[in-house]
Design a protein around this nucleic acid. Structure first.
Lengths: 104, 104
DNA sequence: CTATTGTATGTCGCATCTGACATATTGCCA
DNA sequence: TGGCAATATGTCAGATGCGACATACAATAG
């Protein structure tokens, strides 16, 4: 199986190999997942450019290392709200965020 | 008081006239509120262009008229997740959404 | 005026998301 | 190899968001 496909299904909260592997993902749902993945990996970029660890970023956000890890991987337990708030708090601008989203 | 300021504070979940009127809104929080307001009013634009009522849009979203009203006014009980999902379901593209966000 | 249609506001029970914590895994250096 | 720092994964109780409903307000037609 394609590695990207695995990441996407995982982000959507599905088990790779489950029966609903290719089912039930409407185009809008798929776009939503792509969007979260893009923002998550952009958050990682921002963090790495600042040379912060996940724990350091977490402290600035008032969150925890484990949640930052989940944000970056666009875990299904992470909301767009949290991702966007984290990006803004990490120093990204709305312009940056918008560009990332528009590029999905 | 400036009308826009009122809308923004209201969206942030504050009572206009409360003691914390000009307090506690960090730049990132303000940006986040602006973002929701922009998406909410864009959702209204999309809906009106399609000549739908809030109730009709709600039906397509599997939601309720009252929640659509809250989305459009960027009520504090509405998440970015819901706004973005609603926009995508209403036919907006990620490119559109990204542009709106970048323009905040 | 008074229906009717559309929109706004307030509340509630249930569902999902949150930070925190424990623990597993990875990567790197001596 | 062992040890340490960084990251990933799983779980939980409390916080927040959700659709639904009731009801209030606004605008327009008859």
């Amino acid at each position: 199986m394609d590695e990207n496909k695995q990441k996407r299904l995982k982000a959507a909260g599905w088990k790779v190999g489950s029966a609903s592997e290719f089912l039930g993902l409407t185009p809008e749902e798929a776009e939503y997942v792509e969007l979260k993945l893009a923002l998550g990996s952009y958050l990682r970029d921002v963090r790495l450019n600042r040379r912060w660890t996940q724990a350091q970023l977490a402290e600035r956000l008032g969150s925890s290392q484990s949640r930052v890890a989940k944000m970056e991987s666009a875990d299904s337990s992470v909301s767009l709200d949290l991702l966007v708030k984290a990006l803004l708090a990490a120093g990204a601008s709305t312009k940056d965020v918008g560009r990332v989203i528009a590029a999905v």
